[in-house]
């Protein structure tokens, strides 16, 4: 969802400048951007930095040869899924088998047959695109279309590390629909699902592009608000809270739905521990429930200071 729809970047790692020029010319007509690197170690470092859609990797290079580069690419979680086509002057079966078994998706011999090389590059880019879609699907909650719990855990770890490193603000929100079980019991699970979907849609419309909204589980949601402190988070959350409370539900127009919110913009002591953020937000959420639901509580604050209570449903 946060992927850019620009040209795929292809990283070429080959110690011969002639091959760079040749491929820059021969791949010009393809819908891709080529980045060319002369050394294995620098190629590795570049792969981590630019996260290419495909790597074209020469085998015979000084300092660090292609097999070693391939081994290191496949040992690093950041680059393990990046497709690699080995491009080599060697047509030896042993080299082909080694390259493919180390994790390359294809092996092309030099001198190149260019129509074939271009077709193989296109095929590899298609596979990469499908893998990305699959990876994204694995991070999306099927019912609501929001990010799922796994995505939340991964992004939270990243954002907590980034906010520590760059001294930025960050707010983590846990949110729970009030009396959801009784809603399910009274109107059935289809009605419950409709509420989860309706709230998710509203959430998606109200949050900003940089915010990350997730279904945390059941009727619980989590939102990561980047570059945002609790004070600025409050106005956004208050809008979400009040709009939800005033929504009319076709399946049960007589019964409104509310939610309680707990938020944390920095747990005391353990800022670099993602769990501490969630625990603090969860505690604040519990306080919001205890204080009567349909309200927002900031971790470390006094639950008595919670947002004024609208007419609860």
């Amino acid at each position: 969802m946060h992927e850019q729809s620009t040209k795929p970047v292809v990283l070429l790692i080959d110690d011969a400048i002639d091959i760079h020029r040749l491929l820059e010319t021969r791949l010009r007509a393809e819908d891709l951007e080529l980045v060319s690197i002369l050394r294995g170690a620098e190629g590795l470092e570049t792969a981590k930095r630019i996260n290419p859609a495909l790597i074209l990797l020469d085998l015979n290079m000084p300092d660090m040869d292609g097999f070693e580069v391939l081994r290191l690419l496949k040992a690093d979680p950041q680059t393990v899924d990046t497709p690699v086509i080995v491009i080599s002057g060697s047509d030896q079966t042993a080299d082909k088998v080694t390259g493919l078994d180390l994790g390359a998706i294809d092996y092309v011999c030099k001198p190149f047959n260019f129509p074939e090389l271009r077709a193989r590059v296109r095929a590899a880019l298609r596979i990469h695109h499908l893998m990305q879609l699959l990876a994204q699907k694995a991070h999306i909650d099927g019912l609501t279309g929001l990010w799922n719990r796994q995505h939340f855990d991964e992004r939270l770890a990243e954002e907590v590390a980034a906010c520590e490193r760059n001294d930025r603000s960050l707010t983590v929100v846990l949110c729970d629909l009030d009396n959801f079980k009784s809603l399910n019991d009274s109107y059935g699970h289809a009605a419950g699902d409709a509420v989860l979907q309706g709230f998710s849609r509203q959430l998606g419309q109200l949050i900003r592009r940089t915010d990350i909204a997730c279904r945390y589980g059941g009727e619980e949601f989590a939102i990561i608000l980047r570059d945002t402190d609790a004070a600025s988070a409050m106005s956004l959350l208050e809008r979400i809270r009040s709009e939800l409370a005033s929504m009319v539900w076709p399946r049960h127009p007589e019964r409104s739905v509310t939610a309680s919110f707990g938020l944390c913009d920095g747990p005391p002591g353990a800022r670099n521990d993602p769990n501490a953020w969630v625990e603090a937000a969860d505690k604040a959420l519990y306080q919001a429930k205890e204080a009567g639901r349909n309200r927002i509580v900031v971790a470390g604050g006094n639950p008595g200071d919670a947002m004024p209570l609208a007419k609860a449903g």
Partner: peptide
Amino acid sequence: QRMAHQLKGACGGYGFTPVG
């Protein structure tokens, strides 16, 4: 040897097969 390797790749790639 390195130079020969590079010329092999380059001459082959640029279509000068006998040199490659």
